[in-house]
Amino acid sequence: MASALVTGASRGIGRAIARALAERGDRVAVHYGGDRAAAEETIRSMAGTGHIAVGGDISNPGSAAAIVRTADEALDGVDILINNAAVAPTNGLRHRVDETSFDDWQTAWRTFVDVDLLGAAQMTYLVARRLIERRAPGYVVNVGSRGAYRGEPDFPAYGAAKAGLHAFGQSMAVALAPHGIVVTSIAPGFVSSERQRATLEGAAGTDLRAQSPFGRVGTPEEVAEAVLFLSSPAATWSSGGVLDFNGASYLRS
C-alpha cells in the first residue's frame, strides 16, 4: 500500500484520480484549494480508510510546505504526488493578445503560471526532498494538457504554463531518476469534468465532441486509469514521457 497526495482533488479529474488510487489500495491526501466540503465529499466516495483532506494554496510557498508536511505526517510519508491542481481556462480569464489590456494580460499570466506551473514545481520539490531524505522510491505525475502543443490563442498563458509543466517534468525525470523517483506527465484533451458541463451542454458541445474521431470527449475516470499506470512500477521506463491523451483529437509529430 502506497500513500498519495493529489492536488485539486475536491472534484473533477482530481476526484476521479483520488478514487482510483483508493480503489487500488493507496491512502490518499485529498488536497483542496478552498472547498473543504467538496474534499470531504470526495473522501466519503472513496474506498478504504486513512484518507485525509488537506487545504491550501499551492502557489504560496508557505502554504505549499504546510500541505506537504501535513500529508507526509498523516500518511507516514507521501510516495506518490499527482500535480493536478490548476486554473482552468474560463471566459473571465480569456486574454487574446489583440483584445486584452496590458493590465489584464499581466493578471492572466500571473494567475495561470503561479498555480499551473510554479505551484506544481513547489509541490514537486517538497515531496521529492522528503522522498530523498527517506531514501524511498516514488512517483510524480503531472496533469498537463494538449493545449501545450496545439496552441491556445484565447488563453496563451494557460498553454504556456502547461508546456512549461511538461518540460519541468522531463527535467525532474532526469534529476530524480538516481533517487528512484519516476516522473511522468499526461496531456489530456477536453474532459467532461463538472466545471465543463455547461460548455458541453451549450452550443460549443457539438464542436468539442467532433474534435475526436470517436465523437465524444474524455472522462475523468479515463484520465484516472492512465494515472494509475503512470504511478505504478510498470511505468518506470516511461519516466520523462508525456502521454498524449486526447482521443486522437490532436496528433503531434
Rank of each mutant, 00 (worst) to 15 (best):
L5I: 04
G12H: 01
G12F: 11
G12Y: 03
G12I: 04
G12S: 15
G14I: 10
R15F: 04
A16D: 08
I17W: 07
A20M: 09
L21C: 06
A22F: 08
A22K: 00
R24W: 11
A29Q: 08
H31F: 07
Y32C: 10
G34L: 10
G34N: 08
A37N: 13
A37P: 03
A37E: 13
A38P: 04
E40S: 12
T42N: 11
M46S: 05
G50T: 00
I52D: 00
I52G: 02
D57M: 06
S59Y: 05
I67N: 04
R69A: 12
R69D: 13
R69M: 06
A74Q: 08
D76W: 00
G77I: 02
G77N: 11
D79W: 03
P89T: 12
L93Q: 12
L93N: 15
R94A: 15
H95V: 11
R96S: 13
R96W: 06
V97H: 08
D98H: 10
T100A: 13
F102A: 14
D103C: 08
D104I: 05
T107G: 07
W109D: 05
W109C: 14
R110S: 08
V115D: 04
A120P: 03
A121Y: 09
Q122T: 06
M123G: 07
T124P: 04
V127F: 09
L131I: 00
I132Q: 10
E133H: 09
A148T: 05
P156N: 09
A157M: 09
A157V: 10
A160K: 06
A160R: 01
G164Q: 13
H166Y: 14
F168E: 00
F168P: 02
G169S: 07
M172S: 09
V174S: 13
P178R: 09
H179K: 12
H179D: 14
G180C: 06
I181V: 13
V182G: 01
G189C: 06
F190S: 12
V191M: 12
V191E: 00
S193A: 14
S193D: 07
R195Q: 07
Q196Y: 13
R197F: 10
L200M: 12
G202H: 03
T206V: 07
Q211G: 02
P213F: 03
G215M: 08
V217Y: 05
V217T: 10
T219H: 10
P220T: 06
E225D: 14
A226C: 09
S232T: 12
S239D: 08
G241D: 04
V242I: 15
D244M: 15
F245R: 01
F245Q: 00
L251G: 02
S253G: 15
